[in-house]
């Protein structure tokens, strides 16, 4: 077990140094944004302000999620030059769930699954041309998926 830990530590150091292929070097996890407790705070920590609601951001998800541990979401956008897609869950212990960077040539259309602690608004936040746009949807949760 000790050897495994040491090996994993070495791997992580190598990853940090960009020696493990397939893992971007110099990219750092945005711990401040992932610790934020409100939508406004997350937007600010992602470098934006005053996001606008837009029908060019499309957030699909269930009306009711029976299991809050597995809530399927699809987010897409018809905004030109969408650069990133973030998923924010208003009443989770930490608001930001995920942030995807969309390079040119990749379609702004992501499907994933997230945990929701309770019924609340879910925001899909898209950055396009330096500005932030969002769609919001209330998803009802029967059984919370964070603690339990």
């Amino acid at each position: 077990m000790k050897g495994r830990r040491a090996f994993l530590k070495l791997l992580s150091l190598m990853a940090a140094a960009g020696l493990v292929p397939g893992i971007a070097k110099a990219e750092k996890w945005n711990s401040a944004a992932f610790s934020a407790k409100s939508v406004d705070e997350v937007v600010k920590l992602l470098g934006g302000s005053a996001p606008q609601q837009s029908d060019q951001v499309i957030l699909n998800g269930p009306e009711i999620a029976e299991n809050g541990a597995v809530v399927p979401l699809e987010i897409s956008s018809t905004l030109p030059g969408a650069e990133s897609i973030a998923i924010l869950i208003e009443k989770n212990p930490n608001t930001l769930a995920a942030n995807f960077v969309i390079p040119p040539g990749t379609l702004p259309d992501i499907q994933t699954r997230v945990k929701m602690n309770e019924t609340c608004n879910v925001f899909a936040l898209v950055k396009s041309d330096g500005k932030f746009f969002y769609a919001v949807k209330e998803i009802k949760v029967t059984l919370g998926g964070c603690g339990g």
Partner: peptide, 17 residues
């Protein structure tokens, strides 16, 4: 594609793009 995730991504993460 690159992504930053928090613990609110479900166990055994699924992703399509």
């Amino acid at each position: 594609l690159s992504a930053q995730w928090g613990p609110a991504v479900s166990r055994n993460p699924y992703l399509a793009f």
